[in-house]
């Protein structure tokens, strides 16, 4: 990574830490928690001190599962395309920080539309995967079909051929940084199969695959976490300055922030616990997600643009890696990623 990239990364981190990130992520989750509470008005929370450890854990886990369940039943994994203002305007209409509404108006001018992505802690990886594959399938459809029997093996556009090679080679890279073959294999195979099948996948079929519950795409979403983690570990010296003081080293950072199946669970848990007025240290997921964005785009060789919407009123756009030609544009709001489409 060039010096410029380091600087861009540093700036992005500084900007994101300065904004109201965690506060607003909390608000999101608090709303979800309120909603889930209204659905199950069973018992008011007892005085936390009066609970046994097991009751307390059970309460936390119940609330957590309730929120996740609610998110699963009310939010599609990936929604339909709508205008930016249409998608987000109402959510921020009453927000006292007017900068959000101003920022949405600006984004609405710049971007044609937005797809919402489920807030289940995998939004960054899922949004990226969806948009990247969507573009690939579209591009692939635009390539004239070779006449049958022309001997063109594999088929597909140049980018598809490139990413299939990257995917094939990724296993060796993961084993090299210490992942076990037994763990890598099934996820890696699923990812390669998905790419192998893309030449025969229509845009419509892709949307179905990406939005059905409980199919192999779940494994691919997690495989992106593994690629991210692998990249960070392979370049530990470079990423170490960005992981913050909460972690002893990048191994630990990856173990806690990247590899678990649903990192934002922690966020939800923090809300649940703070509601019970147990003081705990706030985590800083934003920093981790920025490192993840850099690592993943490096691992796949795919550039991503991220628009940061915050209370400043002026969204800022950062491209990972620096100077890349992004084929994917994501909208980051404190605690969440959605997909943006150019005009």
């Amino acid at each position: 990574m060039s010096r410029e990239t380091d600087d861009a990364l540093r700036q992005a981190i500084a900007a994101s830490l300065a904004d109201q990130a965690s506060q607003d992520a909390d608000d999101d989750l608090r709303q979800a928690l309120e909603a889930s509470k209204q659905e199950t008005p069973s018992e008011p929370p007892k005085d936390i001190d009066a609970l046994t450890a097991q009751e307390r854990d059970a309460l936390t886990i119940d609330q957590l599962n309730g929120i996740l369940k609610e998110v699963e039943t009310t939010q599609p994994m990936v929604g339909e395309r709508t205008g930016v203002r249409e998608a987000l305007g109402a959510e921020y209409a009453d927000n006292p920080q007017r900068g959000f509404s101003e920022g949405i108006a600006r984004l609405d001018e710049t971007y044609a539309s937005l797809r919402r992505v489920r807030k289940d802690g995998n939004c960054f990886y899922r949004a990226f995967l969806y948009r990247y594959l969507e573009e690939l399938v579209q591009r692939n459809f635009d390539v004239p079909r070779p006449p049958t029997g022309s001997g063109s093996a594999g088929g597909g556009c140049a980018e598809l051929r490139r990413i299939r090679t990257v995917a094939k080679d990724s296993k060796a890279a993961l084993l090299k940084v210490g992942f076990e073959e037994i763990v890598v294999d099934s996820f890696w195979e699923t990812f390669c199969e998905l790419l192998d099948n893309l030449p025969e996948t229509s845009p419509r079929r892709l949307h179905e695959l990406m939005t059905e519950e409980g199919n192999d795409v779940t494994s691919v979403v997690w495989f992106l976490r593994m690629l991210t983690s692998g990249r960070i570990k392979a370049h530990a010296d470079r990423f170490a300055p960005f992981i913050g003081d909460d972690f002893a080293d990048v191994e630990r950072f990856c173990q806690v922030e990247v590899e678990p199946v649903n990192v934002e669970c922690d966020q939800v848990q923090i809300i649940v616990l703070t509601r019970a007025e147990i003081k705990i240290l706030r985590r800083r997921p934003t920093r981790g997600l920025i490192s993840a964005a850099q690592a993943l785009t490096e691992a796949l060789g795919v550039a991503v643009a991220i628009e940061y919407l915050d209370a400043s009123g002026a969204p800022s756009r950062v491209v990972f890696p620096d100077g890349g030609e992004p084929s994917v544009t994501l909208l980051y709001r404190p605690g969440h990623y959605d997909i943006l489409y150019d005009r």
Binding site: E180, Q255, V256, E259, P260, V261, D266, Q269
Partner: peptide, 21 residues
């Protein structure tokens, strides 16, 4: 470990990852 044998261990709960076999 709870009396019913359930285990309070982060990797079995919120820190679960498929890397654990």
């Amino acid at each position: 470990v709870y009396n019913d044998g359930q285990i309070c261990l982060d990797i079995l709960q919120n820190q679960w990852s498929p890397i654990y076999d």
